[in-house]
Deep mutational scan, measured.
Amino acid sequence: MAEQVALSRTQVCGILREELFQGDAFHQSDTHIFIIMGASGDLAKKKIYPTIWWLFRDGLLPENTFIVGYARSRLTVADIRKQSEPFFKATPEEKLKLEDFFARNSYVAGQYDDAASYQRLNSHMNALHLGSQANRLFYLALPPTVYEAVTKNIHESCMSQIGWNRIIVEKPFGRDLQSSDRLSNHISSLFREDQIYRIDHYLGKEMVQNLMVLRFANRIFGPIWNRDNIACVILTFKEPFGTEGRGGYFDEFGIIRDVMQNHLLQMLCLVAMEKPASTNSDDVRDEKVKVLKCISEVQANNVVLGQYVGNPDGEGEATKGYLDDPTVPRGSTTATFAAVVLYVENERWDGVPFILRCGKALNERKAEVRLQFHDVAGDIFHQQCKRNELVIRVQPNEAVYTKMMTKKPGMFFNPEESELDLTYGNRYKNVKLPDAYERLILDVFCGSQMHFVRSDELREAWRIFTPLLHQIELEKPKPIPYIYGSRGPTEADELMKRVGFQYEGTYKWVNP
């Protein structure tokens, strides 16, 4: 592979701008107003304001973009700056750019259920340069409990009458099928589907988006991507930290609602779906819905739930269990780990287990898709061969690698495990991989909904998990304890083995 010439960040961002501006969906010269509902909250200060700053800094926003914060707290732009700027990672050389960014910011205080507050917000936006005809993007960085009041008031008082209007809704989209349907029906009564952007930030990850290209742009994968060759698929999300004093919020939802029903299920769809007619948003989402419709409700015998306990040999936070978090209700049975087996009941995947695993306070930070292939028929190497695996590593250190057998150097035919490896950090030294939120917010500006969740996708996802969630809430089974920093409950490994996964433990990928 030829040595790549190092590029400056300015040059890299210039390439990104060229890609972005050559499309006809990006209205570079139009006025846009980006409204952050819930501007005083954690999500706004840690993710949304920093993301908008990065896009502005790199010249990736339309030229005439204004940012308006809205929340109940009586704040000023200076207050917003004070709480969000520490997350910007701005350099001293960017000081003038930073001043320009905050000059485009404003803030309006108001209630979430008060019509007069929204009329005041609308008047404020109209007073901005060309504000009355601007395109408006409303980001709901809010708890779902206020979605209905907020969307109703936005629709009645704050819509642009000339430009387009788009609304970005953060997960969780309800707690179960019934609450999700209620919320979807409410929002759909106010906005068209092409105006609604239900954001799952995992769909903005580079390697998640790469799944489609790997599958449908490489001839070698087509013939082997089926039940005849693939023994099982494992989708993993692991965090090495616990709730760390923020367990009160987590306890309301648990690990299945927080990660599995959305992030992991979306990745499953991209692995299992048929080739779409095109890369058009609805063509892709149509195929994802077909996959979900082929999955039956989760069966309790295919589920393992766990909850982390303190590690007596650990240090600091590792010595504390979930129930030691003062914000967690006493005696909570909320799971911090889950392993679930699903089956896609169609011709391509009949009988292939899709194993979804996620948890907190585990032994490493990792998100990946792992396809394990069947054993080689007619073994001539005296059971020395391990199964081939194709691994798409989402985070950290984005990579695609194939675990395969090669001859060990020497005189004899002794096979050993090795890999074919594409590590993004080595291959793409001159490429700026956008943060997931950067990519998705740019998608909203461009009107691309491919990486957002459609209402029928959402409904099918909740259909699969709601009976299990209701059973857990009714019966309150005690989750299996696992030690902070471990791989999780051993019962999860036993479940995976029972459905056909072979864990060798003899080879570990190392970032080159």
Rank of each mutant, 00 (worst) to 15 (best):
A6I: 07
A6Q: 15
L7E: 14
L7D: 10
L7Y: 14
Q11D: 15
Q11S: 12
Q11N: 15
V12Q: 14
G14E: 14
G14A: 15
G14K: 15
I15T: 06
R17V: 04
E19Y: 12
F21H: 12
F21G: 07
Q22W: 11
G23W: 06
D24H: 06
D24E: 13
A25C: 12
H27F: 07
S29W: 12
D30N: 14
T31Q: 04
T31K: 03
H32Q: 11
H32R: 15
I33V: 10
I33E: 05
I33W: 06
F34P: 02
F34E: 05
F34A: 09
F34Y: 06
F34M: 14
I35H: 02
I36K: 00
M37A: 09
M37Y: 12
A39H: 08
G41D: 02
D42V: 01
D42N: 08
D42P: 01
L43F: 01
L43V: 12
A44K: 01
K46W: 02
K47E: 02
P50Y: 01
T51C: 09
I52G: 02
I52E: 00
W53K: 00
W53R: 00
W53N: 01
W54E: 07
W54C: 13
F56C: 05
F56H: 04
R57V: 04
D58I: 06
G59E: 05
L60Q: 08
L61D: 00
E63I: 11
N64F: 12
T65P: 05
F66Q: 12
I67L: 09
V68S: 01
G69R: 01
G69P: 00
A71V: 01
A71K: 01
R72D: 02
S73V: 03
S73E: 06
R74L: 14
L75S: 13
I80F: 07
R81I: 14
K82Q: 11
Q83R: 12
S84T: 09
E85F: 06
F87A: 06
F88P: 01
F88G: 08
A90S: 10
T91P: 09
P92F: 14
E93D: 10
E93L: 06
K95Q: 10
L96T: 11
L96R: 08
K97W: 06
L98V: 12
L98P: 02
L98N: 05
L98Y: 07
E99L: 13
A103P: 05
A103Y: 10
A103H: 13
A103N: 14
R104K: 11
R104F: 13
N105G: 04
N105V: 05
S106W: 07
Y107D: 00
V108I: 13
V108R: 07
A109K: 13
A109S: 08
G110C: 07
G110Q: 11
G110W: 04
D113M: 12
D113R: 14
A116P: 10
Q119S: 13
Q119H: 09
R120M: 08
L121S: 01
L121Y: 01
L121H: 01
M125A: 14
M125T: 10
M125F: 10
N126E: 07
N126P: 02
A127V: 12
A127Q: 15
L128Y: 08
H129M: 14
L130V: 12
L130W: 11
Q133A: 06
A134F: 14
A134Y: 12
N135M: 11
N135D: 10
N135A: 11
L137C: 12
F138T: 11
F138K: 03
F138I: 08
Y139D: 05
Y139I: 03
L140F: 12
L140Y: 11
A141C: 08
L142T: 04
L142G: 05
P143I: 11
P144H: 01
P144K: 02
T145K: 05
V146I: 14
V146H: 07
V146Y: 02
Y147C: 04
Y147W: 02
A149P: 09
A149I: 15
A149V: 11
T151L: 08
K152L: 09
N153R: 13
I154M: 13
E156Y: 08
C158V: 07
C158T: 11
M159F: 11
M159H: 10
M159Q: 11
S160G: 14
Q161E: 14
I162V: 09
I162K: 07
G163K: 09
G163S: 09
W164C: 06
W164P: 13
N165W: 04
N165D: 14
N165H: 12
R166Y: 03
R166D: 00
I167D: 00
I168F: 12
V169E: 03
V169G: 02
V169A: 12
P172K: 01
F173M: 09
F173V: 03
G174H: 05
R175K: 12
D176Y: 02
L177D: 15
S180I: 02
D181T: 09
D181M: 11
R182H: 08
L183E: 01
S184L: 06
S184E: 07
S184I: 10
L190P: 02
F191L: 12
F191W: 09
E193F: 01
E193A: 03
D194F: 09
I196R: 00
I196V: 12
Y197A: 00
I199V: 04
D200F: 03
D200C: 01
D200V: 01
D200I: 02
H201S: 05
H201F: 00
Y202I: 02
L203I: 04
L203E: 01
L203H: 02
G204E: 04
K205P: 00
K205E: 01
E206V: 15
V208G: 01
Q209G: 06
Q209R: 04
V213R: 05
L214W: 09
R215L: 02
F216I: 00
A217K: 01
N218D: 00
I220W: 10
I220Y: 06
I220N: 00
F221A: 09
G222M: 11
G222T: 10
G222V: 11
G222K: 07
I224H: 01
I224G: 08
W225H: 05
W225R: 00
N226R: 03
N226D: 06
N226C: 11
R227Q: 07
D228A: 10
D228R: 09
N229S: 15
I230A: 03
A231G: 12
V233I: 11
L235N: 03
T236P: 01
K238A: 09
E239V: 03
E239H: 02
E239C: 07
P240M: 09
P240V: 10
F241A: 07
F241C: 08
G242P: 04
T243S: 10
T243I: 11
G245T: 07
G245A: 10
R246I: 05
R246W: 00
R246T: 01
G248Y: 07
Y249T: 03
F250Q: 00
F250V: 05
E252S: 11
E252R: 07
E252N: 14
G254D: 03
G254P: 01
I255K: 03
I255A: 08
I256L: 10
I256F: 11
R257H: 05
